[in-house]
Amino acid sequence: MVIPDRKPYLDGLRGVAAVVVFIGHLLLSLFDAFWIFNGRAAVCIFFVLSGYVLADMIDRSKMSLPAHVLRRYVRLAGPMLLTSAFAWGLLAVGAYRNAQAAAVTGSQWLALWYQFEPSFSTMVWEAVYGAFITGTSAYNSNLWTMRPELIGSLFVFVIGSFSATRMWRAIFYIAMAIWFWSDYLMLFSVGALFFDFHSELCRLMKSTVVRVASLIAGLFFFIATERVLNRLNFPHIDMMKWQMLSAVLIVAVVLTWPFVQRLIGGAIGRTLGRISFTLYLIHLPIICSMTSWLVIKLPPTVAILASVTLTIVCVFGASLLLCRLVDEWPTMISRVAGTTVDAIVKSARDSFRQRYTAIMD
């Protein structure tokens, strides 16, 4: 098995996107700030990056399709199960105060979570099956992204495994994009096309003017609200489409502009990338427990500032401490699982060939 070369700037972009989701949720909790929150655009960046990285992996690796599928599932389900168990534990001990804090901050979003009795078996079912199949995400609302993440990965694996040439892959990826035009799965095909046609993308984005214009447009649609777009007389289409466009433009710029690559691919960017999945999965339980408790218990004059400060410190500190357990160890286990399945598939294939040869002889 060949492990794809890591590109630090992609880790940096993934880390920045995870931080945007976290900060957005924190602002939603404390200020009911729907007017500045656009975490879905950051999630769109995750999907485009996954398409790119997985297309890279399937191109370099000699693993079988079943091995790739199992490896991807374990890679996702391991961190999901560990962080969902953390969320379940907080619920079991009565640590969540988000409903009470919502009454103080006025956040309707904060009041939505953890209004049910804990069930360990339900939590396990959600983490290993429900989130992937039905999109269930009661114990951690961020798990809604895992269904498109797994399904999109499967499409990239299948197309990459059975399409012998770049042109055939392009045809299938374009067909996938058209079929899933109104779905996040479309972004996986865009990311995969970015990988297969990277040199063409670089030529298209060679001009600094094109890069700057694309970055400005991407950032604009990243932060723009529906109200702003309406005032500027943009077409009345689903905000999801504008968010998807923003992610495509931003990833295209990062893939082709060395200046931006150096900017986000340094030590800070690499660190953010290393903890990004852990940070993405653990911040909501922390906001609904510790942050909410601070809002309730601290004097009103300092509650918000102290809550923001301590939550940022806690989430980043916990992500750094837990990333090996939550992310790196499941990643290693997923590789072992993939290698094991690959060996089984190879053994079964060789056995079948031997029997077939013996019969023919």
Rank of each mutant, 00 (worst) to 15 (best):
A92R: 14
H198C: 01
L255H: 09
W168D: 10
V16R: 00
T278Q: 06
A217K: 07
E149L: 07
V104H: 11
A55L: 05
P66L: 05
A175R: 04
I264P: 03
L232V: 11
C314T: 14
F31R: 15
S161G: 10
G266E: 07
Y96A: 08
V315C: 15
V212G: 09
V315R: 05
C288M: 09
T339N: 12
L13V: 02
V48C: 03
F162H: 10
M244P: 00
T105K: 06
P235A: 01
S214E: 01
S119L: 06
A127S: 15
Q261P: 12
H25S: 08
Y129N: 10
G160M: 00
V156M: 06
L110D: 02
G130Y: 06
M80Q: 12
I359Q: 09
L150Q: 09
S289Y: 05
L13Q: 06
L49G: 07
L13E: 07
S292I: 05
L294N: 03
F197K: 11
G12L: 04
A111E: 02
V21R: 07
A77R: 08
V308C: 04
F120Q: 01
T208W: 14
A77G: 02
A111H: 10
Y129M: 12
F31V: 08
L10H: 10
M240S: 15
G317A: 10
G265K: 02
F234V: 10
I237F: 13
L263V: 09
I151L: 15
G24I: 00
F195W: 11
T339E: 11
V248R: 05
R355K: 13
S276C: 12
S292M: 03
N140F: 02
I23D: 05
S29Y: 11
I171T: 15
I216N: 01
S189H: 13
V16N: 02
R355V: 07
I133D: 08
W113T: 07
L310T: 11
W329V: 14
L76E: 08
S121I: 14
S137T: 05
I264Q: 00
S276Q: 06
A303F: 00
Y173M: 08
L49R: 07
S319M: 04
R274T: 09
Q354K: 13
A41R: 02
D342F: 01
I344L: 09
I333P: 01
P79Q: 09
V228H: 12
M239D: 09
R270P: 01
A99Y: 13
W181E: 07
A224H: 05
H283G: 03
T225A: 07
L110R: 07
N230F: 13
V251M: 04
S29V: 02
Y129T: 12
S292G: 05
